[in-house]
Amino acid sequence: MKNSLPKLKRQRGITITEFTLVAVVFMFMLFSIIEGARYVYTNGAISHLAREGARYASVRGEQAGKDVLRSSDAPATQTTISSYISGQSPISDITTTVSWSPNNTPGSEVSVTITHTFSSIVTLFNDVELTSTATNTIYF
């Protein structure tokens, strides 16, 4: 009699080893997918915030103070646009930069740039700086 142990008992050690190897690969893939989803969501949110900031600034130019509906927050400045975007943002730690070309008068252009450093929960991935810029024409 070569081996008196039943086949099931002989397989117990190899099953635990296989499970460990498969579980490690599975968990790595799962967390990578979650991190990828977080990255895509954050990138989309940054783009949306840049568009919202440019839209907000385009209707609050130099002449917008004459309109009763916008007189309280017109004309738009770097500070008012940053405050508006921070209030809209589902993401913390964003940087807002606004530039007007050539100035804040109707017909000019306003560009809003949002920057955020995406930090991964899984330490295998490096931090990535996300930037999005939106440009609109000032209407009022």
Results as ranks from 00 to 15, higher is better:
residue 80 T to F: 06
residue 71 S to Q: 11
residue 41 Y to I: 02
residue 116 H to T: 00
residue 89 S to T: 09
residue 84 Y to C: 05
residue 87 G to K: 09
residue 133 T to D: 01
residue 104 N to Q: 06
residue 16 I to R: 12
residue 120 S to G: 08
residue 39 Y to S: 00
residue 117 T to W: 01
residue 90 P to E: 06
residue 95 T to W: 03
residue 35 E to H: 01
residue 102 P to K: 00
residue 77 T to I: 06
residue 46 I to D: 09
residue 90 P to W: 02
residue 92 S to A: 11
residue 139 Y to N: 05
residue 60 R to S: 11
residue 114 I to W: 02
residue 18 E to M: 13
residue 83 S to L: 08
residue 140 F to H: 03
residue 42 T to N: 09
residue 101 S to Q: 15
residue 19 F to C: 07
residue 70 R to E: 07
residue 49 L to F: 08
residue 101 S to Y: 11
residue 28 F to R: 06
residue 74 A to S: 14
residue 128 V to E: 01
residue 111 S to D: 06
residue 32 S to I: 09
residue 119 S to K: 11
residue 20 T to D: 09
residue 109 E to D: 12
residue 64 A to E: 11
residue 31 F to M: 08
residue 48 H to K: 14
residue 4 S to R: 15
residue 121 I to F: 10
residue 136 N to K: 01
residue 26 F to Q: 02
residue 110 V to G: 04
residue 6 P to S: 15
residue 131 T to S: 05
residue 81 I to H: 05
residue 84 Y to V: 00
residue 61 G to Q: 10
residue 9 K to I: 06
residue 8 L to Y: 15
residue 2 K to L: 12
residue 46 I to G: 06
residue 37 A to T: 10
residue 127 D to A: 12
residue 27 M to H: 10
residue 57 A to V: 09
residue 36 G to V: 04
residue 62 E to M: 11
residue 30 L to K: 03
residue 118 F to H: 12
residue 61 G to L: 09
residue 119 S to P: 01
residue 120 S to L: 02
residue 18 E to H: 13
residue 16 I to P: 02
residue 125 F to A: 08
residue 54 A to L: 13
residue 91 I to G: 03
residue 25 V to G: 13
residue 130 L to P: 08
residue 82 S to H: 06
residue 63 Q to H: 14
residue 41 Y to A: 04
residue 32 S to G: 10
residue 100 W to M: 03
residue 106 P to M: 04
residue 114 I to Y: 02
residue 45 A to M: 15
residue 2 K to A: 09
residue 108 S to D: 10
residue 60 R to N: 15
residue 122 V to R: 00
residue 112 V to S: 00
residue 65 G to D: 11
residue 101 S to T: 10
residue 109 E to M: 14
residue 12 R to T: 02
residue 16 I to G: 13
residue 52 E to D: 12
residue 82 S to R: 13
residue 139 Y to D: 11
residue 90 P to R: 04
residue 89 S to M: 07
residue 127 D to C: 00
residue 15 T to V: 13
residue 128 V to A: 00
residue 5 L to A: 10
residue 97 T to G: 01
residue 129 E to Y: 05
residue 51 R to N: 12
residue 96 T to C: 06
residue 120 S to Q: 04
residue 42 T to I: 09
residue 42 T to L: 02
residue 92 S to Y: 03
residue 2 K to E: 09
residue 63 Q to T: 13
residue 77 T to L: 02
residue 140 F to S: 05
residue 1 M to Y: 13
residue 15 T to F: 14
residue 134 A to S: 02
residue 76 A to P: 10
residue 67 D to W: 04
residue 9 K to S: 13
residue 85 I to L: 12
residue 36 G to F: 09
residue 106 P to L: 09
residue 90 P to F: 06
residue 79 T to V: 14
residue 39 Y to C: 05
residue 108 S to H: 09
residue 74 A to P: 07
residue 13 G to I: 06
residue 121 I to G: 12
residue 138 I to S: 00
residue 83 S to I: 05
residue 124 L to H: 00
residue 4 S to H: 15
residue 128 V to S: 03
residue 46 I to W: 01
residue 66 K to F: 15
residue 59 V to F: 15
residue 78 Q to L: 04
residue 40 V to T: 12
residue 16 I to E: 08
residue 51 R to P: 01
residue 118 F to P: 08
residue 83 S to F: 02
residue 17 T to S: 14
residue 131 T to H: 00
residue 135 T to M: 01
residue 35 E to K: 00
residue 30 L to T: 01
residue 72 S to Q: 13
residue 46 I to A: 15
residue 30 L to M: 14
residue 63 Q to A: 13
residue 30 L to H: 04
residue 84 Y to T: 02
residue 76 A to C: 06
residue 117 T to G: 04
residue 66 K to M: 10
